[in-house]
Design a protein around this nucleic acid. Structure first.
Length: 395
DNA sequence: TCTGGGGTCCTAGGACCC
DNA sequence: TCTGGGGTCCTAGGACCC
């Protein structure tokens, strides 16, 4: 196994974009996000500020920090440009999120050189062409490359040589493993596991008692650098959703329903633009003790119609109306899963001049099946052009 | 420290089918 | 009448990630 997997991860992505676009923010502690910290510059992180911390708490740690609002459009645009460089580097790209990807360069040695050389070139290009710092981890497995990029931050290139994986991994704290968070960390701590090395050689039966079979085997394998997962270029989205939270209590049932309707519109518009239909509708709720729960229903057919999804949401809403009207609800979310991409449907039919009713009938059929919003283009081909396709019929 | 908004994956029970 | 193993689908909850 050769070290040929890159994990490329933009550093403090949102904060770096802000510092790039506004020179007055450079080399200064700054935070993106009011409410909670979405990203912080390294100058702010040096004082203990962390992502997902309340902004007010962050300002207590770092009173001189400048706080700016998130500009999602700028981040999406920057991300696109960086991913273009990724795709220019290798055809084998697996995007993980807006700011990170795995890149398999195993087959490129004769064309582009060694993985570390490719990683160095990639970093230089992202810096020169997009103006952002990026850290690259290089290793023989996805997991090790991911841990390496975290260890290499900020603005670094960390290569774990073939055969050196365990020397690299074992001294690190167990929570550096991809998939070990707060809860799992605590469980590991209870049985005396502090480092990845401890986990690697821990008694498996004891581990299973604490974590369950699958989780225990998975983590112990990762700790031993056993990660057979390949860079997967064909990953498809599994769910799509939107949510709103309300810091204070006192949301009425009408407020909540208005928000549900707004979410339905947002989500169905997004689904149509992405050519996705969904069949399972889930209502996610949170109470004033920060306890979350969900209720879902599966429709007979996938849809992106706001009317159909709205009906499903209404059913879920009514089933929980007592809670929603109590004023205890602090968050409402809606998501669609069981996603499919509908084929572009072309309906070709002949009809006699003077019988447009036949077309109306066909459009009605489509409306019944896919919902009103699915019909965004309908054209009557002039004679002799009947076979021209219209690939964006359902965009 | 009083906590956003977007996701993924795993588990487990029950219904239902063969 | 009571019984098996194997499979899929649906629902709910939880941990984790960025």
């Amino acid at each position: 196994m050769t070290a040929s997997i890159l994990h490329a991860d933009l550093d403090s992505f949102y904060a770096s974009v802000e510092q790039r676009d506004d020179p007055s923010l450079r080399d200064r502690p700054m935070i993106v996000g009011r409410g909670i910290v979405l990203a912080a510059s390294y100058e702010a992180k040096a004082t203990g500020v962390r992502t997902a911390m309340g902004t007010s708490a962050a300002l207590r740690l770092c009173p001189e920090a400048i706080v700016v609002d998130a500009r999602m459009r700028a981040y999406v645009e920057a991300s696109k440009r960086v991913f273009e460089i990724f795709h220019d580097t290798s055809p084998l790209i697996e995007g993980v999120s807006i700011d990170e990807a795995f890149i398999d360069v195993g087959g490129l040695r004769n064309i582009s050189g060694s993985a570390p050389k490719i990683g160095a070139t990639l970093r230089r290009r992202v810096r020169d062409e997009v103006g952002l710092p990026i850290t690259v981890g290089v290793a023989s497995t996805k997991h090790c490359a991911k841990v390496a990029s975290q260890a290499g931050k900020p603005d670094g290139l960390l290569v774990v040589p073939e055969g050196g994986e365990l020397d690299f991994l074992w001294p690190l704290p167990a929570n550096k493993l991809w998939g070990v968070g707060k809860k799992t960390s605590e469980k590991l701590g209870r049985i005396g596991i502090a480092t990845i090395g401890d986990l690697a050689i821990a008694d498996t039966d004891r581990l299973i008692e604490e974590l369950g079979t699958a989780h225990a085997h998975h983590l112990q394998a990762l700790a031993n650098n056993q990660d057979p997962r390949r860079v997967d270029t064909g990953r498809r989205r599994k769910s799509i959703g939107s949510q709103r939270s309300f810091p204070s209590r006192g949301m009425t049932g009408n407020d909540a329903w208005a928000i549900v309707l707004e979410l339905v519109e947002r989500i169905t518009a997004s689904m149509r633009s992405k050519n996705l239909m969904g069949r399972t509708v889930t209502l996610n709720l949170r109470d004033n003790n920060f306890h979350s729960f969900s209720r879902s229903t599966t429709m007979a057919q996938a849809s992106w119609s706001s009317a159909e999804i709205g009906r499903a949401a209404k059913k879920l809403f009514h089933e929980n109306s007592e809670f929603l009207r109590s004023g205890a609800c602090t968050k409402v979310g809606l998501s669609l899963s069981n996603l499919t991409s509908p084929h572009n449907v072309q309906l070709a039919m002949d009809f006699e001049p003077g019988r447009p009713a036949a077309v109306d009938a066909a459009v009605d059929q489509i409306r019944d099946r896919f919902g009103n919003e699915s019909i965004s283009a309908a054209r009557i081909m002039p004679e002799g052009h009947e076979h021209h396709s219209h690939p964006n019929w359902f965009q």
